[in-house]
Simulated assay, not measured.
Amino acid sequence: MSAAADTSAEPPLVRFEDIDKTYDGEHLVVRSLNLDISRGEFLTLLGPSGSGKTTSLMMLAGFETPTDGEIYLNGKPIRNMPPHRRNIGMVFQNYALFPHMTVAENLAFPLQVRRIGRAETAERVARAMAMVKLEALAQRHPGQLSGGQQQRVALARALVFNPQLVLMDEPLGALDKRLREHMQMEIKRLHQDTGITVVYVTHDQSEALTMSDRIAVFNDGVIQQIAAPDTLYERPVNSFVANFIGENNTLSGQVEHREGRHGTVRLAGGELVEALLISPRANGATALSIRPERVRLLAPDADPGTDNRLSGRLRDIVYLGDHALALLDLPGTTDFMVRLQAGEQAGLTRGQDVTIAFAAEHCRALDPV
């Protein structure tokens, strides 16, 4: 599947062209990868373990070599270029700081390797420390810093030599939830302030949605879909993307009638549902994708209007603070989710019969699962 960005007058900073990667000569961990990355973009490679996202990042960094195909940086082929000549910054999950060096010395190291003069090095180090708000910790060693502070140093070190591209491999994986969310905002701020191009690898879909300009969703070595976060969430092109990005309801059925992009699907219990027919494979068996917030619980005598209407039983209510999830037993599924706003769960009891409604435009017929 081609995943090239929309072409424009300005050529992409990075281009993956027909990239294959195998370690054993048989199984391709990356298959036919075509991907353009624009200058100044924050692109996230998202997917489960073993999907090919980290291998793709390592090939761009120069730590892995493609089996076939070519990678271009600024229009120049770099497949055989060593990592240190690519002018790329790297941030890893384990920070990779030198424990015997102070914060200032860690930041100065990549400048010294590039033979930058002492005065300019001092100026760049001071600027980088100010960027991540660590000026007061310049003389501390990594072992004297918290995890969040170490991650800030790692970020500053990746930016201090003004790279054209920064690669981040699960950089927040070792942090607790609150600090992780704070660092997401910090990284996004740094990206906006510097205009640097960032390629970010994570398996955390909420992190990808929060930070990215575009997200490339990987599975089995192939990009399943690449788009802006809201497009991926609202308009997934297949069942893998629908189920990997955010919470999703899946109902299996058979397409009975098609008229353009709209169709009628018969569910396992015999109910008929109107849906958008997204997948070209949605001609017989299909999986319907419906987001929990697109479903509403109907009062007993309410008119659903033109919406689809299904009956089921309330199995449980999960309280999540600012909202709750109603879990329903419907024909063919026992975990159908309806998102309730605060207070909407009042009066609901486990085991009661309920009716739900959702619009055809929010029901997407995708490939069967």
Score class of each variant (00 low, 15 high):
R296I: 15
D24F: 11
A268N: 03
H203P: 11
Q225H: 12
Q224L: 09
R235E: 13
A136T: 10
E361G: 03
T7D: 13
L272F: 13
Y95F: 12
Q93K: 03
R15V: 08
I356K: 09
V166Q: 00
E26V: 15
R115D: 13
L33K: 01
E120N: 14
L28Y: 07
T264S: 13
A299C: 08
F240S: 09
T231M: 04
F218G: 01
S252A: 15
M129H: 11
N248C: 15
L33Q: 01
L45V: 04
A342G: 08
T7G: 06
R127L: 12
Q93H: 06
V255N: 10
V369C: 05
S38R: 14
L73A: 11
S32D: 07
G62M: 10
R124W: 10
R15T: 11
A104P: 06
Y319L: 13
T210R: 02
M131L: 15
T210Y: 02
G62A: 12
Q225D: 13
H203Y: 07
H191R: 06
Y200A: 07
A5V: 03
E64C: 08
L366A: 08
M101P: 10
D169H: 00
K188Y: 05
G89N: 06
L179F: 03
E234Q: 14
R364S: 03
Q205T: 08
G347V: 03
E344K: 10
L366Y: 06
P236V: 01
